[in-house]
Amino acid sequence: MSQAITVSVRPDSVAVLTFDQPGNKANVLTRELWAEFGNALAALDRRTDVKGLVLASAKPGIFIAGADLKLLANAPGPNDPEVRAFIELGLRVLEQLEALPFPAWAAIDGAALGGGLEVALACDYRVCGTNPKVQLGLPEVKLGLIPGWGGTQRLPRIVGAKEAIEMVTSGRSDSGHNAAKTGLVDTTVDSSLLIEEAATRVNQHADARMVRAKKQAPLPKATSSTVLADTIAAQEAIRVTSEGAALPLYDAIKLETEAFMRLAGSDESKRLIAEFFASRKK
């Protein structure tokens, strides 16, 4: 099997983990990529010569495009064991990422959508380049789903519940500039300086404990939503985001998982995924 991930360690002891899935124009979160990502993180966790991590992509205009939708499209129905195993694999890998003994930055210079953004949300910090293809969003509701890898819970802990609910229920994507305004990304820089800037900031933010503690705790005050939800997926997104805000992060993610499992494999979701694939062939 060809490698989709390479890891290098710079002279300043910052590791750069680069996604470059062979044979694909985009990096897609398949079971194989999740497994390779988890193995790479485990190897980094054991190293004593690394003081920070930068996640990057070698794909022009793409960070990580999202989940392997073919698996979800082929699910025989809700609560499919194969889909649950897929979701739980990704969740375990993101827990590994959040438990590293050094800070992690996502260096985003293209599309970070769905699961791709959820990977970035599990990092301690995020920096965007100026590539016009930069998009950050959780468009799952457009496929009859909600985010399944912690997006409904990490996003509100970063940008606030009100902003997160609007973003998740609309499925909108933001540019790097707009994401910086909401606090979704920490800074934007010229694309040519992206990795260097991320590495510099690793050295400036050597201790991520406060950031992680804030993300893992319940939100100080739950926010009621005035967003109108016209689909079951949007209704579930509002409920899960709102109810999860009162829980510690990993308890909240369990709430998200059960809601995701009820939606994945539903007739509505499979129809919308089929329409998505059809639209890409035109």
Rank of each mutant, 00 (worst) to 15 (best):
T30F: 10
R31D: 14
G38R: 04
I62P: 02
V54K: 00
A56P: 00
S57A: 10
R31W: 11
E32V: 12
L33A: 10
G38F: 03
L55T: 04
G38V: 09
D45W: 03
F37C: 05
I62C: 13
A42M: 12
R47F: 02
T48D: 14
R31P: 05
L33H: 02
A43Q: 15
S57Q: 06
E36I: 06
L29P: 02
T48H: 10
A40E: 11
A42I: 12
G61M: 08
F37Q: 02
W34T: 04
L55H: 00
L33F: 06
E32H: 13
P60W: 07
A40M: 09
K51Y: 00
K51I: 15
A58E: 11
R47N: 04
E36Q: 15
A42D: 15
L44I: 11
L41C: 10
E36R: 09
S57D: 07
D45E: 14
R46Y: 01
G38K: 04
T30H: 11
I62W: 12
I62Q: 10
A56K: 01
A58I: 09
R47C: 05
A58M: 09
V50A: 05
D49H: 05
N39I: 09
K59C: 11
V50Q: 00
A35F: 12
P60L: 10
R46G: 08
D49E: 07
A56E: 06
K51L: 12
R46E: 13
V50W: 01
L29E: 01
V50S: 01
K59L: 07
I62Y: 14
R47D: 02
P60K: 12
F37R: 04
A43W: 05
E32N: 14
R31Q: 14
D49T: 08
A43G: 10
L29A: 08
